[in-house]
Design a binder for these strands. Structure first.
Lengths: 325, 325
DNA sequence: CTAGGTGCAAATAATTTGCAGAGGC
DNA sequence: GCCTCTGCAAATTATTTGCACCTAG
C-alpha cells in the first residue's frame, strides 16, 4: 500500500517499529475530519483495549513530528488532529452549532498574507485562518448535502479547473498574438505556443473527466480552492490587453508576464501537496510553463537585438526581462 | 474619565459595583498587548495580595461578556486577553521566538473571507487569522523600533491616509468628469462634488496633522491597516476609465460606483471602532458619501428621463442604479 | 434582606511525565 | 544488550466550581 511506504519514508531516524503504533497510525489515517485525542482513544479502544491513553498521545505527537499529522486548534480548549496524507494545508470554516469544520484554500488570501508579512518584516512559518460561524446545514435545517469528500480530489478538481481556464485563455492569447505579430519569427513562436496550449488543454480536459469518474458527485461538491485571479484564466488580462493594440515587443512582454504567473501558480500548488498525483501533474505543468517562459524571453531578446541593429529603437528604453523575479 | 463611563455603559444589568472588580478592570485596561490570566494575577498581586485567582478569572469572563475584553487563542494551550476599548478587531502576527504579537487589519483579506463564507453558505460570526513566524527584531537581532503604539492611533492614521487618497482621487475624478460632461446640469453636479471633495481633503489633511502631533513617531510606525484597493484612492480606477472616453451617463454611473465603494469603506471602518473619535470621523464621511451617492443617482435618473423624452435613447437599455446593492 | 461578589480549596480536563517492565534490532 | 516503546499512575497546567461568607443596593 502506498500509504505504508509514505510513512516508512517519514519515520524519524532511530525509531523502532511497533505493532501498537502501527495500529494507531492506521486507524488514524482511515478517519477523515479533525479528531480529538479522545476520539482516537475511543476508536482504538474498539480494536484493542490494552492500548493506553498515554501511548495514543505519544503516537499523535510522533505523527506530528513525522509530518503525518497536523495539530490544529479550534479554540475549544483541546487540540484536534488531521492527517496530512494527500491533504494539503488549508484554512477552516468552523460551525459553532454542529462543531463540524470545513476546509478551503484561497490563493488570493495566501498572497495577501504573504504581502502583509513581508511589509512587516515578518518571516512567516505558518498561517491559521478560521472562519467561525454557522454552516449552511445548521442554518437552514437542511441535510449537509455532498459534504466535503476527499480533499485531494477537491483540490485536484479545482486546480484542474483553474488550469483549464488558464490554458484556454493562453490559447486565446497566443492565437490573437500570432495574428497581431508582424515579425515572422515572433509569429511562429506564438503559433507554436498556441499549438501547445491546445494540446495541454486536451490533456487537462481528459484528466478532469477521469477525476469525475472517481467520484460521480465531485462536480456538485463545494468549492475548495478559491482563486479569483484565475477565474478566467491567468492569460485573460493579457488577451484583453492585446485587443487595445500593442506592438510585437509588447505582445511578447505580456506573454512573459502571463507565463511567469502561471508558472508560479503551478509550482506553488504542485508543492502544496504532501504527496499525490496532483503534485506530479502540477509540477509537470510548472516545468512546461517555464519552458514557454524561456522561449518567450529568448524571442524577446532576439527581437530586441534585431530591432536595435536595424536602428528601430533607442538602446536604453526597455529593460530586459529577467528569468527570475 | 471617559473609560469609566464607557464601562458603565457596558455593565450588564443586575451587576453590582465592587472595588475588587474595579481594580482588576483598571489594571487590565492600563496594560497593552495580550495578557494571559496569569500575567494579570501577577499584576494584581502587586497592588492587592488579597484578590484571589478565581476572582480574576471571573472578572476576565465578566469583561468578555461585557465587551470590554476579547479572549484570544494563540494555540499556546491557554488564552490571552486584549481589551477592546478604542481597539478594533484585527488579525495577528505572532512571533514564535519572543512570543510577542503584532496586530494588523486587511480590508482586502476581510473581503475575501466574506466571499468565501458566502460561497459556502456560511454565516460568519468572527474570523481568526494568525500569521505565525519570526518577527523582524528577532530575526535581525535589531531592537524592535517604533513597536506598535496605540492601535487606535495607527488605525486612525492609516484610515486617514486612505481617506485622503480617496478624496484626492475623487477630486481628480470629478474635475475631469466636469470637463468631459456636455450636459450643463450634470456638469454642475460634478463641479459641486469636486468642490466638496476639495473641502473634505483640507479637513482630512488637517486632522492628519493633528494626529501626528499626538505621537511624533506616528509616521514611522508600521502599517496597521492594509487596503490595496484604496492605495491610490477609491476613485482612481474611475478616473482612469474617464480618460478612455465616456458619455455623460457613463460618467455618472462610474461616479455612482465609486461613491458606493467609498461609502461602504467609511461605514465599515467607522463601525469597526468600539468607541472612539475615529468612529465619528468615519461615520460622518460615510454619511457625506451617501449624500453624494444619492445626488449622483438623482442626477442619473434625471438625465436618463430627459434623454428618453427627447428620444435620444431606447427605453430599456440601462438599468437604473439602486440605492442599496 | 437578598442577589451578587469573593476566597479558598477541591474539582475538571487535557495533556505530560517518571518509572519499571516489554520488546524490536 | 541497548535503546525504544508501553502501561500505569501521578503530576502539571489552565481553568472552573461548590460552598460559606461578605457587601452593595
Amino acid at each position: 500500500m502506498i500509504v505504508d511506504s509514505w510513512i516508512e519514508s517519514l519515520r524519524p531516524a532511530g525509531s523502532k517499529r511497533s505493532g501498537k503504533r502501527d495500529l494507531i497510525v492506521n486507524v488514524f489515517l482511515r478517519q477523515q475530519g479533525h479528531l480529538t485525542a479522545d476520539d482516537l482513544v475511543e476508536l482504538i479502544g474498539r480494536e484493542d483495549q490494552r492500548i493506553s491513553r498515554a501511548t495514543i498521545y505519544r503516537t499523535l505527537q510522533w505523527m506530528v513530528d513525522a509530518g503525518i499529522a497536523r495539530k490544529v486548534d479550534f479554540g475549544e480548549g483541546r487540540f484536534r488532529f488531521e492527517h496530512s496524507y494527500r491533504h494539503p494545508r488549508h484554512f477552516h470554516l468552523i460551525c459553532k452549532t454542529c462543531n463540524r469544520s470545513f476546509e478551503f484554500l484561497s490563493s488570493d488570501i495566501e498572497t495577501l498574507i504573504e504581502e502583509v508579512a513581508a511589509a512587516r518584516g515578518f518571516a512567516q512559518r505558518q498561517s491559521v485562518l478560521q472562519i467561525h460561524g454557522e454552516c449552511d446545514a445548521c442554518r437552514t435545517g437542511r441535510p449537509p448535502l455532498a459534504d466535503g469528500g476527499v480533499t485531494e480530489l477537491l483540490f485536484a478538481r479545482d486546480a484542474l479547473r483553474i488550469a483549464i481556464a488558464t490554458e484556454r485563455s493562453g490559447l486565446d492569447f497566443y492565437s490573437r498574438a500570432a495574428k497581431l505579430t508582424k515579425d515572422a519569427r515572433g509569429r511562429r513562436v506564438f503559433e507554436k505556443l498556441a499549438e501547445e496550449e491546445k494540446e495541454h488543454l486536451g490533456t487537462l480536459e481528459k484528466r478532469y473527466r477521469e477525476l469525475l469518474e472517481q467520484d460521480p458527485e465531485l462536480e456538485s461538491r463545494p468549492t475548495f480552492l478559491f482563486f479569483k485571479g484565475a477565474a478566467n484564466g491567468l492569460f485573460a488580462a493579457g488577451a484583453e490587453q492585446l485587443s487595445k493594440g500593442v506592438n510585437d515587443r509588447e505582445a511578447l512582454m505580456i506573454g512573459i508576464k502571463c507565463e511567469r504567473g502561471s508558472h508560479r501558480f503551478f509550482k506553488r500548488y504542485g508543492e502544496r501537496f504532501e504527496d499525490s498525483e496532483g503534485k506530479k501533474i502540477f509540477l509537470e505543468f510548472a516545468d512546461e510553463e517555464r519552458v514557454h517562459l524561456e522561449l518567450l524571453i529568448r524571442e524577446y531578446r532576439s527581437l530586441l537585438e534585431r530591432q536595435q541593429r536595424s536602428g528601430k529603437i533607442e538602446r536604453r528604453t526597455p529593460r530586459r526581462p529577467r528569468v527570475n523575479a
